[in-house]
């Protein structure tokens, strides 16, 4: 049997998390079909059909599905679930909202937030906020799984030759109504989900100097983070704090500037895919976890980084 993937999108664009999830599913070497539920999704359904590994796109296109209301989505999945051995969705607030409903109605245990796939029935997932990894084997006939997007590469958006098949499903659910959505300031991604995070520590020396960080963050479309020392010193508010008592982030790229790397801070970012450390002190513990370390005065390095990024952008344009 093949794998069904629930696509995450906003009717207009496919979210990258869908590409990561397809990539995770591809590890099992089975046929992959993608279910797209939304309103006016012809364009994105076609787009997904071209993705690598995708053999078929099932498109449920109805104004009833304009906003992703979980109670409306799970019955649609269940209506076709019998054809699949595995049902995958990204472990984002979208996927987390829907998939447990699917699992319970199939009477199977869901495996959440999978970061590695060992075999058809065995998966690795973080527990205790990533302080331990559990290897779990599912004895259920169907596997309902959410995938941690940052743990899998994105697949190429071409190379597939899937077909789009429209499906119909009438949802009777009317207990929940969508009111509105306030997407956070799109110039600045959310710290907890950003692909790139630029964080500053006490080395910045003042709240004013944090604009050196925001300048770099602007150029990389990154979120801004901070160490506890920077928060304690009053440079930024504690919404920005990354670490044990702040936010845990797992971006593709984490740039730590003027942060020594107290273990409480490391606890909040050590799962990042690539870590860059810029610090004057060559002995700073942050360098022990950094993929790329630069021992330099940040007041010289950041303006240089800014102009290097400009150069890069102008080449691309």
């Amino acid at each position: 049997m093949s794998i069904l993937i629930l696509a995450e999108h906003n009717n207009d664009e496919v979210k990258a998390s869908t590409l990561n999830t397809i990539s995770a599913a591809s590890k099992l070497g089975k046929q992959i079909e993608v279910l797209v539920i939304g309103n006016n999704i012809e364009k994105i359904s076609k787009e997904i059909a071209n993705y690598q590994y995708v053999t078929k796109v099932l498109s449920l296109d109805d104004q009833n599905y304009e906003n992703a209301i979980a109670e409306k989505i799970d019955p649609a999945i269940l209506s076709i679930a019998e054809n699949y051995s595995h049902i995958f969705a990204p472990a984002t607030t979208f996927g987390k909202n829907v998939m447990p409903r699917v699992a319970v109605k199939l009477d199977v245990a869901q495996i959440s937030d999978v970061i590695n796939i060992e075999s058809e029935d065995t998966f690795i997932r973080p527990i205790y906020a990533g302080n331990a990894l559990a290897t779990v084997k599912s004895n259920d006939t169907k596997k309902v799984i959410t995938i941690r997007p940052t743990s899998f590469d994105v697949i190429p958006k071409e190379g597939g030759s899937g077909v789009v098949e429209a499906i119909n499903f009438e949802s009777s659910e009317n207990h929940t109504e969508f009111v509105d959505r306030e997407e956070s300031n799109s110039d600045r991604p959310e710290l907890s989900t950003a692909r790139i995070v630029v964080s500053g520590g006490r080395g910045l020396q003042s709240a004013d100097n944090f604009k050196l960080i925001s300048d770099i963050a602007d150029k990389l479309n990154a979120a801004i983070g901070a160490s506890r020392a920077a928060v304690d010193a009053g440079y930024v508010s504690n919404d920005y704090q990354v670490g044990q008592t702040g936010k845990v982030v797992v971006p593709d790229l984490y740039i730590a500037v003027g942060i020594s790397g107290a273990i409480q801070h490391l606890a909040g970012m050590k799962e990042s895919k690539i870590i860059v450390a810029i610090n004057k002190d060559e002995e700073a513990p942050i360098f022990n976890v950094a993929d790329y370390g630069l021992s330099a005065d940040l007041f010289e390095a950041l303006p240089q980084l800014s102009s290097e990024l400009d150069k890069l952008n102008s080449i691309e344009k």
């Binding site: 504690n238 044990q244 008592t245 107290a262 273990i263 409480q264 606890a267 513990p285």
Partner: peptide, 16 residues
């Protein structure tokens, strides 16, 4: 070990 990794093991915390 450095002090901060040691302190981490104590599980200490105070409401900030």
């Amino acid at each position: 070990f450095d002090k901060t990794s040691s302190v981490y093991l104590t599980g200490t915390n105070h409401e900030a």
